[in-house]
């Protein structure tokens, strides 16, 4: 166990070292893009819509949208960071092969990647939460747990995409994943409007999808409306997703590296 954690920490440090050279490129995706959504939708569209009686706890549209974006941004960051970068390290640059030639085990590689993903998600979510606070959305006491919820959402997606990415020989399939998986979830999981506004079949389907749970959990914490039972359901859903994704990722990493 000690060796596993120590090696996983090395993998984490390796990613941090690389990130210190390439962090500028990640700013748009992680930070500027959600900020632009918040400004255009939250302030622009928000001025046009009537929210009384539609949004929970009498929230303003900006608060409603901002808390949803916090979760969806983590979904996008978690998915993206586990897509091309993983294929790069597995196939293009073969960095995992280099690590696996040392005492670093497959388990340590996967655990190190998940730890690093969590760290990246904390950076992105914390930065976005600061912007929300600057716009008067939420309070420190509500935003800290909301950041944790958003990070959990990102990890759930990240672990699953990581498992998928490890099966690939190149990155071509990711376009389909983002176009037909991530983007529809972004649009129809209650980030921009309550899912009660969706037509019947989609309205029933939405609560089964992962981003819905991430958004509900994060928003509930920002607004202070989260019930205990709902909290348990959302957290369980996301934690199970992390566990499944991580287990499958471990299995596939092992099959790829130990051949």
């Amino acid at each position: 166990m000690g060796a596993l954690l120590r090696s996983a920490w090395c993998v984490f440090q390796r990613n941090l070292l690389v990130y210190r050279h390439v962090w500028r490129g990640s700013l748009f995706m992680g930070f500027l893009s959600p900020l632009l959504f918040l400004l255009s939708m939250g302030l622009g569209v928000g001025a046009l819509v009537r929210t009384e009686g539609v949004l929970p706890a009498g929230a303003s549209f900006l608060t409603f949208l901002g808390s949803g974006l916090l979760a969806s941004t983590c979904m996008q960051t978690g998915s993206f960071e586990s897509s091309f970068p993983i294929v790069g390290k597995m196939v293009w640059r073969r960095n995992y092969e280099a690590m696996f030639a040392t005492p670093v085990s497959v388990g340590a590689i996967v655990l190190g990647e998940l730890l690093w993903l969590a760290a990246r998600l904390v950076m992105v979510a914390a930065a976005f939460a600061c912007v929300l606070a600057a716009f008067g959305v939420g309070t420190l006491a509500s935003l800290v747990p909301a950041v944790a919820a958003a990070v959990l959402t990102g990890l759930a997606f990240g672990a699953c995409v990581m498992a998928y990415a490890a099966t690939l020989r190149d990155g071509a399939n990711f376009n389909a994943l983002f176009r037909f998986g991530i983007t529809p979830l972004f649009l129809f999981s209650g980030v921009f409007f309550p899912i009660t506004r969706l037509p019947a079949p989609i309205r029933w389907l939405a609560p089964t999808t992962p981003l819905f749970h991430g958004v509900e959990l994060t928003r509930g914490l920002v607004l202070g409306t989260l019930g205990a039972q709902a909290a348990v359901i959302h957290v369980t859903y996301l934690v199970v997703m992390v566990g499944l994704g991580a287990s499958v990722a471990y299995w596939i990493f092992r099959r790829r590296l130990w051949t």
């Binding site: 390796r14 050279h21 390439v22 960095n95 092969e97 280099a98």
Partner: peptide, 9 residues
Amino acid sequence: PQLDNLDAE
């Protein structure tokens, strides 16, 4: 290894 697998960045 046969193919270099350095951390290029």
